[in-house]
Design a protein around this nucleic acid. Structure first.
Lengths: 259, 259
DNA sequence: GCCGTTACTGCAAAATAGCGCAGGCCGCGC
DNA sequence: GCGCGGCCTGCGCTATTTTGCAGTAACGGC
């Protein structure tokens, strides 16, 4: 790998992920710590990045528009996303839906190699496409964006077309970030499109990881996802108020994995 | 292999791969390290490439490849886009490919009502989704993003999946912004994905509008689009140097519409 | 707030990879 | 056969990367 390549890579990673750990870069580019350090030193002296303890940060103050909503509880969401990534194996095929937590998930996902990601989220597709290894690399990820209608509010695809496309894949895992999860209604979304997409994904995969921070536990929204609780693993962060709701979910067969 | 051949080869490789290692070139052309070195030295002195440690990089002024490329000739492209929009009727279904001119086209397109837009360009889909009338409005546009693989460089979908999806639609018009259009090879693109997508779109629609500013007239790139000239309308801006090339295209049955 | 642990940094020597020169070989045209 | 341009080989040199070590900053328990 040329030094030039590394420069480009670091910058392109930074374009979609605001901060990178040194370790992450070492993993990603398979070079020594010191080499990364030299690169960062060089890039910093060019004013292209800003070095911070443990890694490097983007040198910019402006904020893209869509990012704002996910500014809530980012730390929790990232922790949940990291835990979810740990449950994945190289070579698996995964469905990912369009949510704020899954957008963060996308940033954590590039450490798993040879993954096939099938998603209806444009955000997820762009982030993964931006961070994935260069063409020809052995552990390159494949990112499939599902076709379908698009929508003014959320960068995703949906509708009959999307549902049909989902049926063409059979994945190992479905990763969802729903509006709520409760013992009564299971996994629920705020609109029927998202719910039916999630149902279709669940149907076409053998297990489901539900990414939900504590604020979503026990919440019931309008449209439910059809999926047997026994296939579901809930990844969430602990909060005293949720003990009861989590126990109820556990009693139904949902595996609960606290972060 | 002639030195001249190697020069051409190195440059054409660089056109699609930003950086090349010396080893890669040695492998590719089956010559010694020193020969490659001499070639690179020569090319560098001509200002055609930039040498870096371990290889060679494309010489370029600046560029995050996609965003800035569309900064070129924006005024012409916008004029061409406006002219293209005039040829569309309310209620039609149109295919749009992923190019810089079509990205501008997307901004002009919201004037036509009840359009169904089918595209593989994420940029186009997002722009249209962003500008379209609110849900429930009578003349609301429908935007369908084609599914498929996604790619680190250009925000679009491509591949077998995308080709198959195109075949599910039968559109009135295909709008393309190719790399070049010439009497010899017709409409051409720089990579085979784009070309086969364009061919599939052309096959599934009754007419084609080719959006090409004057710099593209007479240009021949590597991968040609299969489409009878009689179905093509070329929308371009006039430039004295092109008179001949335009006449040749006209003689083949391509309708030429100057802006 | 103090202290021990862990993790990150920075330097410098050693190892490795790439560079450039000089000289020689080969095929071609005369 | 001879000269010439183009290409390859060997060797010393330089740049880059890794490795090992010591110092320093962050973190967590008490």
């Amino acid at each position: 790998m040329l030094q030039e390549d590394r420069f480009v890579r670091i910058q392109s990673l930074l374009a979609s992920i605001d901060r990178l750990s040194t370790d992450r870069l070492i993993q990603d580019m398979q070079v020594s710590r010191e080499t990364v350090r030299q690169d960062l030193l060089a890039l910093e002296s060019m004013g292209l990045v800003r070095r911070v303890h443990g890694g490097v940060a983007r040198v910019t103050q402006d904020e893209p528009p869509f990012v704002q909503r996910q500014a809530l509880r980012v730390a929790e969401k990232r922790a949940i996303a990291k835990a979810a990534v740990k449950r994945l194996q190289p070579g698996q095929m995964v469905f990912i839906d369009a949510g704020t937590t899954t957008a963060i998930l996308a940033e954590e996902l590039s450490l798993i190699s040879r993954l096939v990601v099938v998603t209806n989220s444009i955000t997820v597709a762009l982030k993964l496409a931006g961070t994935q290894a260069p063409a020809g690399t052995a552990n390159r990820m494949r990112v499939v964006l599902l076709g379908g209608d698009t929508n003014p509010e959320i960068p995703c695809t949906y509708g009959e077309v999307t549902l049909n496309e989902i049926r063409r894949y059979r994945a190992d895992v479905t990763l969802l970030s729903p509006v709520g999860i409760s013992a009564q209604d299971g996994v629920t979304f705020g609109n029927e499109h998202e719910a039916s997409l999630a149902s279709a994904m669940a149907e076409q995969s053998s297990s489901m990881l539900v990414l939900a921070d504590y604020s979503k536990i026990g919440l019931r929204s309008r449209y439910a996802v059809a999926c047997p609780p026994a296939q579901q693993t809930l990844i969430t962060n602990a909060h005293p108020a949720n003990t009861e709701a989590l126990a109820a979910l556990g009693a139904q067969g949902v595996a609960v994995l606290p972060v």
